[in-house]
Amino acid sequence: MHPIKDIYLIRHGETDYNRMGVVQGSGIDAHLNELGRQQAQAFFDHYEDLYLDKIYTSALIRTHQSVDGFIKKGIAWEQHPGLNEISWGNKEGKSPNTDDDLYYKNLTRTWREGNIDVPSEEGESPVQVLERQKPVVDLILSRPQEQAILIAMHGRAMRVLLTHLFEQPLHKMDDFAHSNLCLYHLQYSYPDRVFKLVKGPLTEHLKHLPDSM
Score class of each variant (00 low, 15 high):
4 I>G: 01
5 K>W: 00
11 R>I: 02
14 E>C: 05
15 T>L: 01
15 T>P: 00
18 N>L: 07
20 M>L: 12
20 M>N: 07
25 G>V: 01
25 G>M: 01
26 S>V: 02
27 G>A: 07
31 H>G: 00
31 H>R: 10
31 H>W: 05
34 E>Q: 13
38 Q>F: 03
40 A>I: 02
42 A>R: 05
45 D>R: 10
47 Y>W: 09
48 E>H: 11
48 E>I: 07
49 D>K: 12
52 L>D: 02
55 I>H: 01
56 Y>H: 01
58 S>I: 03
59 A>W: 00
59 A>E: 07
64 H>E: 08
65 Q>N: 00
67 V>M: 06
69 G>V: 08
70 F>P: 06
75 I>H: 04
79 Q>T: 11
83 L>Q: 06
87 S>L: 08
92 E>M: 05
96 P>D: 07
97 N>G: 08
101 D>L: 13
103 Y>G: 10
104 Y>W: 14
109 R>W: 09
118 V>H: 07
119 P>R: 03
120 S>D: 01
123 G>L: 05
124 E>I: 06
125 S>M: 06
126 P>E: 12
127 V>C: 08
128 Q>C: 04
130 L>F: 11
132 R>M: 09
132 R>T: 03
133 Q>W: 01
135 P>C: 08
136 V>I: 15
138 D>N: 13
141 L>D: 06
142 S>D: 11
145 Q>W: 13
146 E>W: 12
148 A>H: 10
151 I>Y: 04
156 R>L: 14
157 A>T: 03
157 A>Y: 04
157 A>H: 04
160 V>Y: 07
160 V>T: 15
163 T>Y: 14
163 T>K: 14
166 F>Q: 02
167 E>D: 15
168 Q>S: 15
171 H>P: 02
173 M>D: 11
174 D>E: 15
175 D>L: 14
176 F>V: 13
178 H>D: 14
180 N>I: 10
182 C>M: 14
182 C>L: 08
184 Y>G: 02
185 H>M: 03
189 S>K: 14
193 R>H: 15
200 G>Y: 10
201 P>F: 02
203 T>R: 04
204 E>P: 00
204 E>M: 09
205 H>G: 08
205 H>M: 13
207 K>L: 12
208 H>D: 15
210 P>T: 01
211 D>C: 09
213 M>L: 11
